[in-house]
Computed example of a mutant assay.
Amino acid sequence: MLPSTMVEESTEILAHERVTESYYLLTLRAPGIAPRVQPGQFAHLRIWSRPDALLRRPFSIYQARGDTISILYKVVGKGTAALARMQPGERLDALGPLGHGFALPSPDGPEPILVAGGYGMAALYLLAERSPRRGIVFVGGRRRTDILCEAEFRALGWEVRPATEDGSYGVRGLVTEPLQVELQRHAAHRKLYACGPTPMLRAVARLAEAFGLPAELSLDEHMCCGMGVCLTCVVPVRTDGGWEYQRACTEGPVFDARQVLWEIPA
């Protein structure tokens, strides 16, 4: 039995386009899911064209407008390669929206600072779109083609500061390096929101702690069921009595950075 906030439906592919060398934008008609989506939640898709792919694939919901949702994804394996070959008019079984998302910034609260690595931008777009105040988006990637959605975030009124490891665009280096410079310049009354590879999230958590800032992190964990049953996506988090495992698909994927244990105590 599905929770009342979750829907399983057969969705129609309305549009499917290649954005860069490895990234694709998929738009689905999902009237049951779209109105329920909160920033940071995800959808679990079953790819029918892969009969050997028994498990669904989790994807951050990039946009939710009217009766449609959009998924921005990267081809990383057989499942996403099969998804990339699907055409408008074909159908996908979708389950969503799933997970605990981001808390929206308040109009008079801390200035939001978003930090994204690669397709982490997809998980942050709805937050940026629905935030009552604008801030800065730090986005990083290995090279220029990994910098996604820059124009879309600028169109919302956000300042975008890119960084690439090879120096092909923006600042050369890791995205957390210009973030640290900015926080050294001014850190008071700011809050960090981040999504990306685990090493980046760990670095953001350390910066938040060093500067005494609140931070919310969307953890990128492997998932099977997406509903908290299989326990394959658990992460260690602090509790009043010590620590425990919590499920990234239900208690997360967004966690308070102060909760996350990056190393399990001996």
Results as ranks from 00 to 15, higher is better:
52 D>H: 10
167 G>P: 11
167 G>D: 15
83 L>R: 01
121 M>K: 01
185 R>M: 03
106 S>Y: 11
116 A>N: 03
109 G>A: 05
165 E>N: 06
53 A>R: 05
163 A>R: 04
110 P>D: 03
182 E>H: 11
115 V>E: 12
179 L>E: 06
87 Q>W: 08
112 P>W: 07
172 R>A: 10
99 G>A: 09
125 Y>H: 10
149 C>K: 01
80 T>V: 04
101 G>E: 04
47 I>P: 09
68 T>M: 10
64 A>D: 04
172 R>E: 15
71 I>H: 05
115 V>S: 07
64 A>F: 05
69 I>H: 12
57 R>G: 06
77 G>P: 08
119 Y>F: 13
54 L>V: 10
120 G>M: 04
55 L>F: 13
96 G>C: 01
110 P>Q: 02
62 Y>C: 03
77 G>I: 01
177 E>Y: 09
174 L>F: 09
121 M>E: 03
136 I>L: 08
187 A>F: 09
119 Y>V: 02
48 W>T: 03
159 E>S: 08
158 W>A: 08
105 P>S: 14
114 L>H: 01
111 E>F: 12
111 E>Q: 12
66 G>T: 04
65 R>K: 10
71 I>E: 06
141 G>E: 12
177 E>G: 05
123 A>R: 00
82 A>L: 06
60 S>V: 01
138 F>C: 03
84 A>P: 00
82 A>I: 00
127 L>R: 02
94 A>V: 01
55 L>M: 07
167 G>Q: 13
68 T>N: 14
67 D>L: 00
63 Q>M: 11
177 E>V: 01
167 G>R: 09
159 E>W: 09
150 E>S: 10
130 R>W: 14
48 W>V: 05
90 E>M: 05
75 V>K: 12
77 G>K: 04
159 E>L: 06
180 Q>H: 11
162 P>K: 11
169 Y>L: 12
94 A>F: 04
100 H>M: 06
134 R>L: 11
129 E>I: 00
125 Y>T: 03
129 E>N: 00
175 V>P: 09
142 R>Y: 15
135 G>R: 10
73 Y>G: 00
112 P>K: 05
119 Y>A: 04
116 A>F: 03
105 P>G: 12
187 A>V: 14
78 K>H: 12
59 F>N: 00
106 S>P: 12
118 G>K: 01
162 P>L: 12
167 G>E: 15
111 E>S: 13
161 R>Q: 13
63 Q>V: 06
82 A>N: 09
68 T>P: 14
188 A>W: 13
86 M>Y: 07
145 T>K: 03
183 L>I: 01
64 A>L: 00
56 R>A: 15
116 A>I: 02
72 L>Q: 08
162 P>T: 15
141 G>F: 07
126 L>T: 03
158 W>E: 06
181 V>E: 13
77 G>D: 05
180 Q>D: 11
160 V>I: 04
123 A>L: 07
143 R>Y: 14
99 G>C: 07
89 G>F: 03
134 R>H: 13
132 P>T: 01
133 R>N: 06
155 A>M: 09
81 A>F: 09
47 I>V: 02
78 K>G: 09
159 E>I: 02
